[in-house]
C-alpha cells in the first residue's frame, strides 16, 4: 500500500495551491431534432460510408433477408437469446450453432464459423455507431469478434441521433462494444483500409417496428 499512499500524498502536495474547478458547461446538443425516418436515413448514410452493407426492412421481411445475406455460409453462430424467427428462412444446409450459458464455444470453434448474427442494444445515427452490451440476444464479446462476417440486427426503436441520447439508454457497467463499420486501419499513409483483425464484413439489418 505504500505506493498508493505516496502517490496520493504527492497529489495533495502538487495541489497545495487549492485550485477550484469551474462549473462544467454542458451547452452541447443532448436532444435530437430530427424526425425518426431521417434519423434512420442518417444512420444508413454513415454505415454505408464505413463500407458496411445496410438494409432497412419491415420486421416480417427479416428472415428472408438473413437467408440471403448468409447464403454462402456453412456454419453460423448465434447467441442463445436471439429471436430464432430471424433464422427461420435459412436453408437446412447451414449449420446453426448457439452460444450461451449451457454451451460456450471455444475460440477455435468460433474461428471455424463463417458468420455470426447478433442483435444490438443502441445505435447512434450521427456517428454510425452500433453498440452491443452483452445481453442475451447479443451474446458475449468473443462471438461477434472472431467470425469474419458479422450480421447485426438493429431494431429501429433502438436508434437515436446523438451520442448523449445513447448514453441515457446504456448501462455503462455492462461489457460494451461500440462498432462503427467493419474493422479498418489507417496506419499505412493514413489511407483507410477495411478489414484487419475484426470481422472484415459487417452487414446491418435495420428493422422497422411491426
Amino acid at each position: 500500500m505504500r505506493a498508493k499512499e505516496e502517490i496520493l500524498g504527492r497529489i495533495r502536495c502538487a495541489l497545495g495551491d487549492g485550485p477550484i474547478p469551474a462549473e462544467i458547461p454542458r451547452a452541447y446538443r443532448t436532444g435530437s431534432l430530427l424526425p425518426d425516418d431521417e434519423v434512420i436515413e442518417l444512420l444508413v448514410d454513415r454505415l454505408v460510408d464505413y463500407k458496411a452493407g445496410v438494409l432497412v426492412l419491415d420486421a416480417a421481411q427479416a428472415p428472408q433477408a438473413v437467408a440471403e445475406i448468409l447464403h454462402a455460409a456453412r456454419t453460423v453462430v448465434y447467441p442463445q437469446g436471439l429471436d430464432t424467427q430471424l433464422l427461420g428462412a435459412l436453408p437446412e444446409t447451414v449449420e446453426l450453432i448457439a452460444d450461451g450459458r449451457q454451451r460456450q464455444l471455444s475460440v477455435a470453434e468460433l474461428d471455424q464459423a463463417d458468420a455470426v448474427i447478433t442483435s444490438s442494444a443502441v445505435s447512434i445515427a450521427e456517428s454510425g455507431t452500433i453498440i452491443l452490451d452483452g445481453s442475451a440476444d447479443q451474446g458475449r464479446r468473443a462471438i461477434s469478434l472472431v467470425p469474419d462476417h458479422h450480421l447485426c440486427v438493429v431494431p429501429a426503436s433502438t436508434i437515436v441521433q446523438l451520442l448523449p441520447e445513447a448514453m441515457e439508454r446504456l448501462t455503462i457497467t455492462r461489457p460494451l462494444t461500440w462498432i462503427s463499420g467493419p474493422s479498418a486501419t489507417s496506419d499505412i499513409e493514413l489511407e483507410r483500409v477495411e478489414g484487419v483483425h475484426g470481422p472484415r464484413t459487417l452487414d446491418v439489418l435495420i428493422l422497422r417496428d411491426a
Binding site: 452483452g134 455503462i172 461489457p175 462494444t177 475484426g198
Partner: peptide
C-alpha cells in the same frame, strides 16, 4: 458523451473509430 465525440474526430478524422471497448472489472462468462 463528450470525449467520444472529441477524440475520434481529432485523432483519425473519423466520425467514430471502428471499435471501442468498455469493461468494468470482471464480467463472469465474458
Amino acid at each position: 458523451e463528450v470525449f467520444m465525440q472529441l477524440l475520434p474526430r481529432s485523432s483519425t478524422g473519423e466520425r467514430m473509430n471502428p471499435y471501442s471497448s468498455l469493461w468494468t472489472g470482471v464480467t463472469p462468462g465474458d
